[in-house]
Design a protein around this nucleic acid. Structure first.
Length: 367
DNA sequence: CCAGACGTTGTT
DNA sequence: GTCTGG
DNA sequence: CCAGACGTTGTT
DNA sequence: GTCTGG
């Protein structure tokens, strides 16, 4: 499952929402070689998504490079003493990567859309295969607003549904990434896959598979990303379970099936009329003033092309308007996200780091 | 030893 | 039916 | 994941 | 890259 999802949020808002869940992230725009993510309600394989991964450093010294020795599998350097100190710092980076994983050894460097978009949780249980090296050292979190599933109605019609968290927080998929080096150009392409498992009870009426979903900032989230864990374990395997929280699941504008289109109507419930053609949808508000929208016309269902520029605004999310300080992008999306009831985020929470140490007080190493 | 596979989904 | 593009 | 293409000729 | 099949 999960061959399409929604990601119509600017990076600044994603960072803010993660921060509200206790995850402080940095924008890993590496050497600038990575393009910005594709901001769309209709995110498809081959698009550039937002991926979170973790790096460990000690006393401000990056040890990520040293970790690469682990691939030698016999390296005496793994577990060198500076990996064991309690002063290790885990940094979370957001990076733009292409959906559809291509293993580093893949020969289809040039094949644009050949990557594998999903990874079954049970195929990670066995050794060997294309995942074996990836699952040990290249785990990540894939950020989304929610995902789509299509229900086959009487063998003919397909009806798209949107699935999101009931609490409105970001959906964090368990993922795996890899990269390919293009010898000639000297560039590197990063790609990722989303891990799937059995559907939970709530989703089962639609499909039998669903992505593995973590709560941002949860123990599972940190454990999955923990960069010093470079060996596949039962503990990691046991994280890959059907989502136990509550979901919102509802039919949406069927045009989400049409590739390349994007509209906020794709993540808003359809309102179905008695009239068989009278399928209209619920348009709370449009931030774009240009097009004269007529939310209540049945016509509206067809009127959703080229509207990456239309974005949902709800009054409750106004405070989540991105600060337009450094990123004067034209069309930044807002969301229906309701911030934590607590209070606005205060400080980067050194507690987050503290807690991580609690989770992994005992540093694990490779074999 | 080398050559070839290495994946998921759904549908039947 | 099957492949490609998004 | 789904939707859409799947082709050639000649003419401008 | 690493494992399997022949």
């Amino acid at each position: 499952m999960c061959g399409r999802y929604s990601l119509a949020l600017p990076l600044s808002l994603i960072q803010q929402m993660l921060a509200d869940d206790g995850v402080e992230t940095e924008d890993a725009a590496l050497d600038g070689s990575s393009e910005a993510h594709h901001q769309t309600y209709n995110f498809a394989p081959g698009n550039n998504g937002v991926v979170c991964r973790a790096n460990a450093s000690s006393s401000g010294v990056e040890i990520k490079g040293k970790c690469h020795f682990a691939s030698d599998n016999k390296s005496p350097r793994e577990g060198s003493s500076n990996l064991e100190g309690r002063d290790e710092v885990i940094k979370y980076n957001l990076q733009s990567m292409k959906w559809g994983i291509l293993p580093s050894w893949s020969k289809q460097n040039d094949a644009p859309n050949r990557g594998v978009i999903n990874c079954r949780d049970d195929s990670l249980r066995t050794t060997g295969g294309m995942w074996q090296s990836i699952k040990a050292r290249k785990r990540c979190i894939v950020v989304a607003q929610g995902f789509f599933e299509w229900l086959n109605v009487s063998g003919k019609e397909k009806r798209p549904y949107f699935i999101k968290r009931k609490d409105g927080h970001l959906m964090c998929f368990a993922g795996l990434w890899d990269s390919i080096l293009h010898q000639d150009a000297g560039t590197r392409t990063y790609t990722y896959a989303i891990i799937t498992t059995d559907s939970n009870q709530q989703l089962r009426f639609l499909h039998h598979r669903m992505p593995v979903i973590f709560d941002a900032g949860s123990k599972e989230f940190h454990q999955w990303l923990y960069p010093l864990q470079q060996r596949w374990t039962d503990d990691l395997q046991s994280l890959l379970k059907p989502f136990q929280g509550e979901l919102d699941i509802y039919p949406v504008n069927r045009n989400v099936g049409r590739v390349g289109r994007s509209s906020p109507s794709f993540i808003v419930p359809l309102i179905q009329n008695d009239d068989e053609h009278g399928i209209i949808h619920f348009f709370p508000k449009i931030s774009d003033s240009s097009t004269a929208e007529k939310p209540e016309t049945p016509d509206e269902t067809r009127k959703c092309e080229s509207d990456d520029e239309h974005h949902l605004v709800s009054s409750s999310s106004r405070r989540y308007l991105p600060e337009r300080t450094e990123s004067p992008k034209k069309h930044e999306a807002e969301s229906c996200y309701t911030p934590p009831s607590k209070k606005r985020r205060t400080k980067p929470a050194p507690q987050g780091i503290q807690r991580i140490t609690d989770f992994f007080g005992q540093t694990q190493r490779d074999k």
